[in-house]
Design a protein around this nucleic acid. Structure first.
Lengths: 216, 216
DNA sequence: TCTGCAAAGGGTGTTTTCACCTTTGTATTT
DNA sequence: AAATACAAAGGTGAAAACACCCTTTGCAGA
């Protein structure tokens, strides 16, 4: 064996992160060289350049800088860095967005440890690793949708609106907070309905929470 | 040292659970004797009676049987069992409900490992363990509220209804699924509004997700 | 047996949400 | 200068959500 696979972790759930560190410590072909609580911290450490990991394991839902943003930022500077996404949710949207952002693999937090190990090894060796589950989901999604639509890049207004939707305020009250007419709020809502294939405020709330846009 | 503190885990996030197992394995005064993916499984194992842990660490958000239900069920049969609640969320409601359900301590998933260790040891020794954060929150909540209201013991119908609220179905559609009149659904909703001090469907959705009633 | 309570369901009216389509102002392109 | 594009905002009507108050039914306890 030449040398160990160097791994960086970013996850705001410290207990989870420490747990993963312990798991990896038990595997003799890899080691954790960086362990940060969010993407911004990890980027700082990477930029400092003291250690350069082979693989970054990123939680999708992080404060400050979430998994999507972090992945894009890392890929922008280090295009060959391998990224493994970790999340509690396995929605098609999450998986696809993370892969689009440059991740080479996707592991759920309720995966078994050997699945994590396999993902890390596969990612290191081949540059990607996908479980059958994820492959199946992605194929289904990519095939079943009529293209576009789900790119779902939301602008700042839409994100702010979505967050406010996750409260008991009516749209009129949200309009007041955002300083626009309630008609404009109607437009925001209708655009999001269209863009995200949603039909109700409840749908917006669920979407915002699942994607981590709303903190809950 | 006499013998190790025997710990049972119940958490549907396998990776997290395995991580905690590893952490505990590093501490020489305790050991994991049971590790299950939900409350129902844990109860089965406890009932089988082959091993009896000193402490049960329960995730609040589990499918099948969540932390609240599991804690109550365990306390009903083994009133002296110590229960440590673990959750991603630190809402007052979660903390208080869990303590009411019989938990002697509450740890967040983003806690540091030594906080977990301290909680386990404190719980074993004193029967309870509360961080200053949790103590402060509870005091605030208990003092600031005008009593009652938040007992919030929901019956099976209400729980089913809340879960269905976390979809894009209208109340009429929910009524069809539940096999009751949409008038009855109005009653369920109005009762929950009253009971939980909520004013809108969005509020119900947020409540259901925060408490783990809805899986999301 | 009577009483009272709780669950299921109904009536009615207001507010909010949703759908769809139009107008206005402003900035950018050609 | 004209054409284009887009965000903001208005109009209108239908559906859904919310509020409040009422009746029936069944069942448990005095």
């Amino acid at each position: 064996m030449n040398s160990k696979i160097k791994i960086a972790l970013a996850d705001d759930h410290t207990l989870f992160r420490k747990g993963v560190e312990e798991l990896i410590a038990d595997w003799d072909n890899m080691e954790v060289v960086l362990s940060e609580c969010n993407g911004a911290e990890l980027l700082k450490k990477l930029t400092a350049g003291n250690v350069m990991p082979d693989i970054c394991i990123l939680d999708i839902n992080m404060p400050e800088m979430n998994g999507f943003e972090t992945a894009r930022a890392i890929k922008a500077t280090w295009p060959h860095m391998h990224i493994l996404a970790v999340s509690v949710y396995d929605t098609e949207f999450n998986v696809i967005s993370m892969l689009r952002a440059g991740a080479g693999g996707y592991v759920l937090k309720d995966a078994r440890p050997d699945a994590l190990k396999a993902a890390i090894e596969g990612l290191y060796k081949n540059g990607f690793h996908h479980s059958e589950l994820v492959t199946g989901r992605i194929l289904h999604q990519l095939l079943s949708q009529t293209q576009e639509a789900n790119t779902a890049s939301l602008n700042a207004k839409e994100v702010e609106f979505l967050k406010l939707c996750c409260t008991e305020m009516t749209y009129r009250e949200i309009a007041d907070i955002m300083g626009v007419s309630h008609r404009t709020i109607d437009n925001y809502r209708d655009q999001l309905f269209e863009k995200l294939a949603i039909k109700s405020r409840t749908g917006l709330v669920l979407y915002a929470i699942r994607t981590g846009i709303a903190a809950i």
